[in-house]
């Protein structure tokens, strides 16, 4: 084999290994690498939410501590101690992601899971919303799940600032942060009072978050949240129905009817809206109007709500009979 060929081959090998190593770094922290090319638009290069409270964690309870940090910042009266009974699992010595979201709702706060993007995290922090993240601080075979709260960053210095464990202000390089955060599939959440929308909120995502809160939170909070939602996405049927259901739960029947009429003007054939408006009007004693509406809802052909529509129809007829 000629000498030049061996040298050529080994040079190629070295180049290959070098490229692989570079590519390896980039794929270890792809989002940090992407930030070098494009910084999210409209986001300051440095920001810090110094007013976010700090609750040093006890034992393995970083979940309750992180959640209390975000909840208190959003104005809810939560303490890490009471959150232990809501999110901590003794024999797992930790807290599940689902429960972190669920517990926030029990304080009438809207828990919104962020899209798995560093850009979105930075945008939320820049907008004044501390972000709870799940990191794996282990390495290799050791897994070490940990919740922390991102409260700021300084991109020129290459650091993010976290309330983490027993450290009030942990400065951590972007690369290290992404490496630890990546293993949770970039899991992050914000908890905000109803009416204050996450800047990265999407229509289906935020609607699901409000509906989840409506399950356990109070109707007042749901009304505020749905109203804010409809200011931004006025065409949404589910949110309008949710708003009306909130009013209905508080027996504010006129408000419920008004909300349903607004959405009926946009979606005149919605069976759900027709049925619910008929029910509300019947409760208000306006059975003639209600009957006209429910007859519009009883379209030929089966749909999911046909049973409910028949019930409402029967109820209205029965009430008309009685009042005769």
């Amino acid at each position: 084999m000629p000498n030049w060929f061996v040298r050529f081959r080994s040079a190629r090998l070295v180049a290959g290994v070098f490229l692989l190593a570079l590519g390896g770094c980039a794929s270890l922290v792809p989002q940090t690498m992407a930030l070098r090319d494009t910084w999210p638009e409209g986001v300051a290069l440095r920001t810090e939410l110094a007013e976010v409270p700090f609750f040093p964690q006890q034992d393995y309870q970083c979940g309750p501590a992180a959640l209390a940090t975000a909840l208190v910042h959003s104005g809810a009266g939560a303490t890490p101690e009471e959150l232990v009974t809501l999110v901590y699992i003794p024999s797992r010595q930790g807290s599940l992601q689902v429960e972190m979201l669920a517990a926030a709702r029990r304080y009438g706060r809207i828990a919104y899971p962020l899209a798995p993007r560093l850009d979105d995290l930075l945008r939320e922090v820049a907008a004044g919303n501390p972000v709870i993240v799940l990191q794996d601080n282990g390495a290799g075979p050791i897994v070490n799940w940990h919740y922390a709260v991102v409260i700021g960053f300084d991109y020129p210095a290459g650091e993010l600032y976290l309330r983490s464990g027993e450290t009030k202000r942990l400065a951590i390089p972007f690369t290290v942060f992404e490496y630890t955060w990546k293993k949770s599939n970039y899991w992050a959440m914000v908890t905000l009072p109803p009416g204050r929308m996450p800047v990265t909120a999407t229509e289906p995502g935020y609607l699901a978050s409000i509906a989840a809160m409506e399950r356990v939170g109070d109707a007042h909070a749901a009304i505020i949240a749905y109203s804010a939602f409809l200011d931004r996405w006025p065409d949404n049927i589910s949110a309008s129905v949710g708003l009306a259901n909130g009013h209905y739960a508080l027996r504010a029947l006129e408000d419920a009817a008004a909300a349903l009429r607004r959405v009926l003007a946009r979606h005149p054939d919605s069976v759900v809206v027709l049925n619910n408006l008929a029910q509300v009007l019947s409760d208000l004693g306006r059975n003639d109007e209600a009957l006209a509406l429910i007859e519009r809802a009883a379209s030929p052909g089966e749909n999911l709500f046909a049973g409910t529509v028949r019930e409402t129809h029967a109820l209205i007829l029965q009430r008309m009979e009685k009042s005769k």
Binding site: Q61, Q93, G94, Q97, H146
Partner: peptide, 8 residues
Amino acid sequence: APAGGDGL
């Protein structure tokens, strides 16, 4: 499922 716990 991941259960976040340790702070170290």
